[in-house]
Amino acid sequence: GPREVTMKKGDILTLLNSTNKDWWKVEVNDRQGFVPAAYVKKLDSGTGKELVLALYDYQ
């Protein structure tokens, strides 16, 4: 199956793709996968990378 990404509340993840309104593709610890968009919030990183903050645990 697809590689699952797990996250804990407060984690910072790299946002790869947010074109789908329900599932965003993120990368964390060299793993890529989809997380519910409602579970993360975009951060203003000030760099080229888009980052998101995990609002809830997800696994």
Score class of each variant (00 low, 15 high):
residue 1 G to H: 13
residue 1 G to F: 14
residue 2 P to L: 14
residue 2 P to A: 14
residue 2 P to S: 13
residue 4 E to M: 15
residue 4 E to R: 15
residue 4 E to I: 14
residue 4 E to W: 15
residue 5 V to M: 14
residue 5 V to F: 15
residue 5 V to N: 03
residue 5 V to Y: 07
residue 5 V to P: 04
residue 6 T to W: 13
residue 6 T to G: 08
residue 7 M to L: 06
residue 7 M to W: 06
residue 8 K to M: 08
residue 8 K to W: 06
residue 8 K to F: 07
residue 9 K to S: 06
residue 9 K to C: 06
residue 9 K to T: 07
residue 9 K to P: 05
residue 10 G to A: 03
residue 11 D to S: 05
residue 11 D to F: 04
residue 12 I to M: 05
residue 13 L to Y: 06
residue 13 L to R: 00
residue 13 L to D: 01
residue 14 T to F: 10
residue 14 T to R: 10
residue 15 L to F: 03
residue 15 L to K: 00
residue 16 L to V: 12
residue 16 L to S: 02
residue 17 N to I: 06
residue 18 S to W: 07
residue 19 T to S: 14
residue 19 T to G: 08
residue 19 T to C: 11
residue 19 T to Y: 08
residue 20 N to K: 05
residue 21 K to G: 07
residue 21 K to M: 08
residue 22 D to N: 13
residue 22 D to G: 07
residue 22 D to I: 13
residue 23 W to T: 01
residue 25 K to F: 15
residue 25 K to N: 06
residue 25 K to E: 14
residue 26 V to P: 00
residue 26 V to C: 03
residue 26 V to T: 01
residue 27 E to Q: 12
residue 27 E to M: 11
residue 27 E to A: 10
residue 28 V to D: 06
residue 28 V to F: 15
residue 29 N to S: 08
residue 30 D to S: 11
residue 31 R to L: 12
residue 32 Q to K: 08
residue 33 G to Y: 15
residue 33 G to S: 07
residue 33 G to V: 15
residue 34 F to G: 01
residue 34 F to T: 04
residue 34 F to H: 05
residue 35 V to K: 00
residue 35 V to W: 02
residue 35 V to S: 01
residue 36 P to E: 03
residue 36 P to I: 05
residue 36 P to L: 06
residue 37 A to F: 03
residue 38 A to I: 10
residue 39 Y to M: 14
residue 39 Y to G: 06
residue 40 V to F: 06
residue 41 K to D: 07
residue 42 K to Q: 08
residue 42 K to H: 07
residue 42 K to F: 08
residue 43 L to M: 08
residue 43 L to K: 02
residue 43 L to I: 15
residue 43 L to H: 03
residue 44 D to T: 12
residue 44 D to V: 11
residue 45 S to W: 10
residue 45 S to F: 11
residue 46 G to T: 12
residue 47 T to V: 11
residue 47 T to H: 13
residue 47 T to N: 14
residue 49 K to C: 09
residue 49 K to I: 13
residue 50 E to T: 12
residue 50 E to V: 13
residue 50 E to Q: 14
residue 51 L to P: 01
residue 51 L to C: 07
residue 52 V to Q: 00
residue 53 L to F: 06
residue 53 L to N: 02
residue 54 A to S: 04
residue 55 L to C: 05
residue 55 L to W: 02
residue 56 Y to P: 00
residue 56 Y to M: 12
residue 57 D to C: 05
residue 58 Y to H: 03
residue 58 Y to F: 10
residue 58 Y to T: 02
residue 58 Y to I: 03
residue 58 Y to V: 02
residue 58 Y to C: 02
residue 59 Q to R: 09
residue 59 Q to D: 14
residue 59 Q to V: 14
